[in-house]
Simulated assay, not measured.
Amino acid sequence: MHTLHRTQKLPINLQQAWDFISTPANLKVITPPYMGFEMTSKHHGDKMYAGQIITYIVKPVLGIPLKWCTEITHVQEPDYFVDEQRFGPYTFWHHQHRLKEISNGVLMEDIVHYKLPLGFLGNIANSLMVERQLAEIFEFRHKKLIELFGEYKA
């Protein structure tokens, strides 16, 4: 099992942060273009809710499309939600999206636990590529959120 943990402070209020991250259509906005992210389920701007299924196609390696299906398993508005992979590239994927009000803004926290298939070969792939690619995706997200909402100043 591998873990990715990221935090980011934004100069917006808790409700603004929740409204943005809990809208499925915004996933495309915060995903690097090279991933070829395409949502295949229809949500029409709805907010996430427990039990919601979201399907999409991503192209993380050499433009090869991968189908991915996640379920929103937990929602505690406006504090957190959890998405879990139901099928896709990982053997296990559990992603917590947490928000906390802080002075002059909000603290966003992402905690991802994941496991790749193929045992030790999956671990090698994680070391050679997946870990770095996930870091790049979250770095893109970090920069995009600053572009959208501004730089946090304490």
Rank of each mutant, 00 (worst) to 15 (best):
M108W: 01
F81W: 06
M35R: 05
V112C: 04
T70L: 06
N104Y: 04
L62R: 15
K67R: 14
L62H: 12
L118K: 04
A50H: 05
H44I: 11
I64V: 14
S127V: 13
H97R: 03
I102F: 03
P117T: 02
I72G: 01
Q96R: 14
G122E: 03
Y114S: 08
S127P: 07
R98N: 11
M108P: 05
E38Y: 01
G122R: 02
T23C: 12
V112L: 14
N123E: 11
G36A: 05
F92R: 13
E71G: 07
L116V: 03
H44P: 08
W93Q: 05
H94A: 01
I124Q: 09
I124W: 07
N126W: 00
V58D: 04
T73L: 03
K100R: 14
G105F: 00
L107Y: 00
I64M: 06
V112P: 03
V112T: 04
M48I: 15
V61D: 10
V58K: 06
W93H: 06
E109L: 02
F87N: 15
Q96W: 09
H97A: 05
Y49I: 12
L99M: 09
V29L: 13
Y80T: 07
G36L: 06
E101T: 12
K59T: 12
E38M: 10
Q76V: 15
L99N: 08
T73F: 02
L118D: 03
L128A: 07
G119W: 00
L121F: 08
L66F: 08
G36K: 04
N123W: 02
A50T: 10
P78E: 03
I111N: 13
V130E: 02
I30R: 00
I124T: 11
H43N: 12
G122Y: 01
M39V: 08
Y56A: 06
I111F: 07
N123R: 11
H97D: 06
F87D: 15
A125V: 10
C69V: 11
T91V: 08
L66M: 15
H43T: 08
E101C: 07
T31S: 13
K59C: 11
G105M: 03
E109P: 07
V29K: 12
H95D: 07
Y56F: 09
H74V: 15
E38V: 12
Q96P: 04
G45I: 05
Y34Q: 15
Y90D: 11
I64Q: 06
H113I: 09
K42Y: 10
Y114K: 13
T23Q: 11
G105S: 03
Q52A: 09
N26I: 12
D83E: 05
C69D: 06
S41W: 00
L107K: 05
F87G: 13
G88C: 10
H74Q: 15
L128Y: 02
M108L: 13
H97V: 06
Q52F: 00
I54F: 02
F81I: 06
Q85H: 03
E71N: 08
K115I: 04
C69A: 13
V82P: 00
T55Q: 09
I111C: 11
Y49G: 14
K59I: 10
Y90E: 10
A25C: 13
E71I: 09
N123M: 09
